[in-house]
Design a protein around this nucleic acid. Sequence first.
DNA 1: CTCAGCCTTGTTAACGCTCACACCAAGGGA
DNA 2: TCCCTTGGTGTGAGCGTTAACAAGGCTGAG
Lengths: 357, 357
Amino acid sequence: MATQSSNRFDNQEVRVATIGDVAREAGVSRSTASYALSGKRPISEEVRRRVLAAAEALAYTPNAGARALATAQTKVLGLLAQFHEDEFAPAMMQYILGVTNTARDLGYDTLLVTEADGVRALRRVTDSRMVDGVVLMNIAHEDARLPVLRAAPQPGALVGLPGDCSGLDVFDLDFEEAGRVMVDHLHRLGHRELILISHPEHVVERGGAYVWRLRDAALERARQLGVTLHAVYGESRQPAVGRLLNGLLDAYPAATGLLINNEAVAAALPSVTYARGLRVPDDLSVIGRYSADFAATFSLPYSFIESAPDRLGAMAVRQLVRRVESTQARAEPFVVRFISPELVSRESTAPPGSTRS
Amino acid sequence: MATQSSNRFDNQEVRVATIGDVAREAGVSRSTASYALSGKRPISEEVRRRVLAAAEALAYTPNAGARALATAQTKVLGLLAQFHEDEFAPAMMQYILGVTNTARDLGYDTLLVTEADGVRALRRVTDSRMVDGVVLMNIAHEDARLPVLRAAPQPGALVGLPGDCSGLDVFDLDFEEAGRVMVDHLHRLGHRELILISHPEHVVERGGAYVWRLRDAALERARQLGVTLHAVYGESRQPAVGRLLNGLLDAYPAATGLLINNEAVAAALPSVTYARGLRVPDDLSVIGRYSADFAATFSLPYSFIESAPDRLGAMAVRQLVRRVESTQARAEPFVVRFISPELVSRESTAPPGSTRS
DNA sequence: CTCAGCCTTGTTAACGCTCACACCAAGGGA
DNA sequence: TCCCTTGGTGTGAGCGTTAACAAGGCTGAG
């Protein structure tokens, strides 16, 4: 179970090379070594070679803490995500990867903070100057973190739309348009009674605006088109999801289309339709809202609105880094950008067949 | 689209309070303020109150970079995860949360590094002293990062079993035992022909030992028990997964049990069984291997071996922090710990019914 | 009365890096 | 001839924090 061999920590700390060591090895001053490495002022070819060789030989890597102290830049971005009880964590992964990968491409590392108390977490990472900027996720309509962010010395970017965007760069899917696209699409095919399943009610209570943004826009469009739309809260776990779906299909036998603004419900739907002998799209047309990646990994055969989590994460990071790196960019007005919902066809919609009932 | 209001970065940097400001405000020296805040040496009640009040009034938070430089401790752990093309990212989320949450409980933040080049990433975060220790995930049998980790000045912990554990703390599910438990369980119920679906072949080629560890142990046990076991590679995406499953069920009509060591395949199975009119467990017994959380969110109705990602992440972090914080703990021998596979019943197994064919 | 020893606080030197400010030599224009 | 520029390099201060060392005042024992 446990090896008896002694370990590499037995002998005292191996001292790692500093820029002073590199300078000595190359026979120059510390600043010359620094400049040769950074290229921030002209250095003779001869000296530059010697410094580079010395750095290579000593496997020199600048000490991040020291550099941060001297430059007031950490080259780290904070990523604040909140995972509430009962939330659908797996879908989050795509957003996170969008952020970490883009950050790295731009030369930044990412501090992932999943602390439940988001306000305290944000205050901690900004006040301590651990990060040059922050990306906030899981934005609530009235998000308690926003006042803290606005007062922070570092810039920040949001993935998700809050009630008040002032003083912030905001990126989100255009959920209103997504709702309209869903309704339009099925209306055009001839559907006249639809069901829209959103997230669980507690998500709304927590201020998850994307729920009502899509729903209200869908309801409005349905009203304009004379389509009946039953908008209901969803569930995020089994067996509640299954019960809910069966209950809805029983309650609205004339509904011929299903709109799903909730990954967990979409994931649960295939089992239910198969169990009930419903054919998609012959008996029931379905449109979801998630990412292509998510669809592929979870065998979701439905047409869907691409939620583009990676693109959103990337956009937020790019704007954030712009502000971090340029005083000029810092002074620019804040932006609120929406990604247009794109309907990806998986052929799960068709003109309504005979009524299901 | 963009507000015209000027922003808070227009005026120059708000200088944030340093410990010097706190000291001045409290009328003491910097070191006294430091000691009063850290409690590392006795301070009179009177002075301590003054310092605390000053710190409070100035909203003082220690500068992380400066502290790191002075103490040679960053209070940050690195989490190195590699997301290979075509890998099943969502299942990763649970492991990550296990790490970040436990780290935070112990007073550490987490630097999430998802860079494709894991060796370079590891070298960067350790050499630059950005982190006090690292947790490595997605361990390959011959993982190129391990030599780097062994040579690093910081301790590290692995989630996943490499070929050579020397000089490392390792935590993993006991995949061998998991394979045996699966086979034993179905054998006891009377099954005599089973199919085991693993990960895609490229996972094995990349050195994903958990694939063959479970498989080989299952094959060995099956041999001992006189059970026929068809072990095959899986797929991780639609529509390949569906094709694979259908193909297998056609190819082995006498098989009455399915063992699934692959989240993506498990997620895809319900659609296939429903489509084929197969009842679980009446016509087919199924056992998966994933986490309870995963099962709940993805409506997976199968009995499964709990893979306990959160527990593994937490164990790794706890051991890592022990080593980071205590010279004594550093000198202790390295450990390799396996979590025992626990079979969680969802009643998807039963004695074999009439042969499916 | 003196001095060891404790309690409390201050002084100062790091930690490793960057950058503003010299400084020097060589070359070119007036 | 002198001065000014320009290219190349060194010196040293400072980033904010900690901690080793020093030092003062007080108590109590001899």
